[in-house]
């Protein structure tokens, strides 16, 4: 047990605070794709580890916190998948109700089938790309709409 904990400490690293340009790129994606204004995230920092972006509340000062050996910081927000940005289902479940564009409303039976079979034949007036999956007022997470299909990225 002692050994295991030590190993984790060693690996634990503070995520990097992203540059203003990178922050703007990620938040612009949310704004353009889903119509969620950048100001929604004004009280949050955007941090990055490898290909992941994390949302973390903006502290009065970050430096004292950076001396802690952390396991996780904030909420997993967006991932970089090859050259694309992909919203996480976790973040969509939290902020997806603010989306005004690229929202797919499914019936309970369609949602069931999507969760079971991971894809559905689907035609809608949508731009191809990542979508918010909703059912009866609840946001379930992220899907991909492409070529007449809806692909599930639900956890």
């Amino acid at each position: 047990m002692k050994k295991r904990r030590k190993k984790i400490h060693k690996e634990a690293k503070w995520p990097r605070v992203v540059s203003l340009e990178e922050r703007d790129e990620v938040l612009s994606f949310w704004e353009e794709r889903f119509g969620i204004p950048k100001e929604t995230f004004a009280d949050y920092l955007l941090l990055s580890t490898a290909k992941n972006y994390w949302l973390f509340v903006k502290p009065p000062e970050l430096r004292p916190l950076q001396n802690l050996q952390v396991q996780t910081v904030g909420l997993l927000f967006t991932r970089r998948v090859s050259k694309w940005l992909k919203p996480t289902s976790t973040a969509l479940q939290r902020f997806g109700h603010l989306a005004t564009r690229n929202v797919v409303e499914l019936t309970p039976s369609e949602l069931d089938r999507l969760r079971r079979e991971r894809r559905l034949p689907f035609e809608a007036e949508l731009e191809e790309g990542y979508v918010v999956i909703k059912c009866e007022g609840k946001v379930w997470g992220c899907g991909l709409y492409a070529k007449g299909k809806l692909i599930s990225y639900l956890p």
Binding site: R5, I8, H9, Y44, L55, F56, V57, P64, L65, N67, L68, Q69, V70, Q71, T72, V73, G74, L75, L76, F77, T90, A91, Q93, R94
Partner: peptide
């Protein structure tokens, strides 16, 4: 994660020796 909290970070210290500084 389940509750969508973005204001928390997690650490794994023994409380009795939690480091000073914050």
């Amino acid at each position: 994660k389940r509750l969508g909290v973005a204001s928390a970070l997690t650490t794994i210290y023994r409380g009795e020796v939690f480091p000073y500084g914050v």
